[in-house]
């Protein structure tokens, strides 16, 4: 069996009487991006803090590259790169000095460190501002440096805790592209977010977390199927739709159809595969179609189904 880059199980953390994390477990392999999706206060940061050895856990196990993670285990921490939710850079140091300082903490030095710092500055697009103090940087530039420090020592596992909060669209896109690039290069990535679009774009698998518990886990498709969600198709029509609706109900892949005033609404399994057939049946029934709108189920609707509330609640 190949060794998991990250394996955690039964994670539990209690603050006074509040159970912040309860029985959280998942694994990540090399080259895989795992998303922890949940609203603010769901237990994402607490889980990450235990995984990265910042916080003592009240229960469960964490191994990184087969090495057990605790608050004092330096060998496991050496394999991990952390990008905290809050910007963690020194404002009175330059971008290069920030990178160099943290690089030294990971036993890097000399020419190797300088070359790697230059490389990272290139990746995060700050080469031309390398020797400027970060106090003069924009929020987006600080965010990019925040990520750069995390990946400086080429960690086996990169943990990003809501890295795009408060970032302008341009920087946000740059950050997401960087994560995709790192994943392609074989780095295991743990990505927490409450932005459904980011999780759908980046993550190979997603764990939906709420009230400190993983409610469901899998690929996007698996999650959608798990909760029985279908694509919603709306056809703009002219003419009587009754015959068309009766014919559509008999089609494979159509779970339900409803005719209304100038429109037909359908719940379809894999709308893309059945759309041509649906349109044929409708036109053959004497109904003219003036518009088509397909609404695929997403993680937002999965979250809503699982928790009864929206991600941003």
């Amino acid at each position: 069996m190949t060794q998991r880059t990250l394996e955690c199980s039964g994670l539990r953390k209690v603050f006074d009487d509040l159970v912040a994390v309860d029985d959280v477990g998942f694994h990540i392999d090399a080259g895989e991006t795992y998303g922890l999706l949940g609203p603010n206060g769901a237990g994402k940061t607490t889980s990450i803090s235990m995984i990265s050895g910042l916080l003592m856990r009240d229960g469960g196990t964490v191994t990184v590259g087969g090495r057990e993670m605790t608050t004092t285990s330096t060998d496991a921490k050496a394999l991990l790169g952390l990008v905290p939710q809050d910007i963690a850079v020194y404002p009175d140091l330059t971008a290069r000095e920030n990178l160099t300082f943290f690089g030294r903490l990971y036993d890097m030095d000399g020419k190797t460190l300088k070359a790697r710092a230059d490389e990272v500055l290139e990746i995060i697009g700050l080469s031309d501002r390398a020797d400027d103090r970060t106090e003069d940087f924009s929020g987006g530039m600080k965010r990019r440096l925040n990520i750069g420090i995390g990946l400086l020592h080429k960690p086996a596992l990169l943990i990003l805790d809501e890295p795009t909060v408060g970032v302008d669209p341009q920087s946000r896109n740059a950050i997401l592209e960087s994560v995709e690039h790192l994943s392609r290069e074989g780095m295991a990535v743990l990505y927490t977010t409450h932005y459904m679009e980011e999780a759908e774009r980046l993550c190979d698998r997603v764990g939906i977390i709420d009230h400190g518990q993983i409610k469901a886990e899998g690929t996007r498709r698996e999650l959608v199927q798990m909760v029985g969600q279908h694509d919603r198709v709306r056809l703009e029509t002219t003419g009587s739709v009754d015959a068309a609706v009766a014919a559509l109900d008999a089609l494979d892949g159509v779970a339900k159809s409803d005719g209304g005033d100038g429109s037909i609404e359908l719940l379809v399994i894999e709308a893309g595969e059945h759309l041509t057939e649906i349109l044929s049946v409708v036109t053959e029934s004497g109904v003219a179609v003036s518009g088509v709108d397909i609404d695929e189920p997403n993680l937002e609707s999965v979250f809503l189904h699982l928790t009864g509330r929206a991600l941003r609640d």
Binding site: A78, Y90, L105, I149
Partner: peptide
């Protein structure tokens, strides 16, 4: 306060 403490604590160095 600066947010850098988690980064130090996550580094492979003794407290």
């Amino acid at each position: 306060h600066a947010g850098t403490l988690p980064r130090l604590l996550a580094a492979p160095i003794p407290q």
